[in-house]
Design a protein around this nucleic acid. Structure first.
Length: 403
DNA sequence: TCTGGGGTCCTAGGACCC
DNA sequence: TCTGGGGTCCTAGGACCC
């Protein structure tokens, strides 16, 4: 089963503010240069879509109401919904903040079938949160996700094994999870528009063009997906931690760029320490005013998790760059991660630094980002993070004990 | 009036070693 | 008097998901 909340952020906002109900609204980031994150169905009727600029959105729907994103609220609602899903099977895979897969193989008899489970889930979510979801039921994840897409909002779609070949025959390839804009266009160029056509296409040609992806594409077109539903406790460990931000104004001043990098490094370091990981590779991303984007990475001599260390590493990368245009976005990412032992450093200076960082994290976890911060960032106050992350991970983000 | 942010995976090329 | 081949590590970029 695939469960997909309908217009999640917008629906939560409409539910918590009755004045917004029935009106075209769109949730955006808090900054000027942000895009539409989610539009309510009333707004979608005007053509307002995720990813649009505010300007575009207003062009299509002048009476649109913009609502700044309330990340905490969405995370809270999501966490409760995901917990509720556990009532029907322990095998729940949180796919994003508003989507989950459930393996119901072992629960069908107990609840008298998958459709009844879908009914229970839908009515409980509606009663508790006042929002709707679309549910897809099928023999595997790929098909369940396809099924949930078929009927929105508030849908329930079952793909029975016998009907699947006929369904796939006419299914547009763009619907497949893994075929985006680019790939979709390329396949169209090959005369492939439907899953049926993709399934019959010579595999050798797909392989030559796409390598392993070619094999996967054809398997998907045939409705094959062997991947299991992976619950959080068995999911692969995180592989990288990063933070990036489009600046309010394009920057040329190197000092201002450095100050921003320090902020980013602190956000990355905080999350790395919360996850109890350190990383050996630091990547700096720069997007220029003309949208040209470059990234430079550097392997460090040691595994890092301290904000200052991450900052120093990203500064070193920056020093080797000639910035030939105003900078629009900066990003810092830490990868090649390993789990930390959590051991106190041996030498006094490092030990002091470690304890200082720990104390700072503790205060900032409790009173908010950048409550205790480097003096050099005083002027940046109030420009901190209001980041939305639809790719939010359930485990380890909150409630990590800091003694 | 322009075009978000957090991730994963894949590819291709070069350096280097034996 | 001529440039093989396998393996690993590193780097940059891009497609894709939400």
């Amino acid at each position: 089963m695939h469960v997909d909340m309908n217009a999640f952020f917008a629906a939560v906002e409409q539910q918590s503010s009755p004045a917004l109900r029935g009106r075209p609204i769109a949730v955006t980031g808090s900054e000027q240069r942000s895009v539409i994150l989610t539009a309510s169905y009333e707004a979608r009727a005007f053509g307002v879509k995720t990813g649009m600029t505010r300007f575009e959105a207003f062009e299509r729907c002048p009476q649109l109401v913009l609502v700044p994103a309330n990340n905490r609220l969405y995370t809270h609602v999501s966490t409760e919904i995901m917990a509720m899903l556990q009532d029907y099977t322990p095998l729940v895979e949180v796919f994003s903040i508003d989507e989950a897969f459930l393996d119901l193989s072992g629960s069908l008899r107990l609840f008298n079938g998958a459709e009844r489970i879908a009914y229970l889930i839908k009515s409980r979510i509606r009663a508790r949160f006042g929002i709707t979801c679309s549910v897809g039921i099928a023999p595997n994840k790929l098909l369940a996700k396809l099924a949930s897409e078929q009927n929105k909002p508030d849908g329930l779609t079952v793909f029975r094994p016998a009907e699947i070949p006929a369904l796939l025959e006419k299914m547009p390839i763009q619907e497949l999870c893994g075929v985006g804009r680019r790939l979709g266009r390329q396949l169209q160029g090959l005369g492939i528009l439907t899953c049926g056509q993709l399934a019959r296409f010579p595999l050798a040609v797909l392989r030559r063009k796409y390598g392993l992806v070619g094999d996967k594409l054809q398997a998907m077109a045939r409705g094959l997906d062997p991947s299991p539903v992976v619950p959080a406790e068995r999911s692969a460990p995180i592989k990288s931690v990063g933070h990036s931000r489009t600046l309010r104004d394009d920057l040329v001043d190197r000092q201002a760029i450095c100050a921003f990098l320090l902020q980013l490094a602190e956000m990355v370091g905080r999350r790395a320490r919360r996850y109890q990981v350190s990383g050996r590779v630091v990547t700096l991303t720069v997007r220029y005013a003309n949208f040209a984007t470059l990234s430079r990475q550097q392997v460090q001599g040691d595994y890092l998790a301290g904000s200052e260390d991450i900052y120093r590493a990203s500064m070193q990368i920056l020093d080797n760059l000639v910035l030939d245009q105003p900078v629009r976005l900066l990003g810092v990412r830490l990868s090649d991660l390993r789990f930390k032992t959590g051991q106190l450093p041996l030498f006094p200076a490092e030990r002091r630094q470690y304890l200082l960082t720990e104390a700072r994290d503790c205060v900032n976890d409790r009173y908010g980002d950048f409550t205790v911060m480097f003096g050099s960032l005083l002027e940046q106050r109030g420009k901190g993070s209001h980041v939305i992350s639809p790719a939010w991970r359930p485990q380890g983000v909150r409630n990590v004990a800091v003694q």
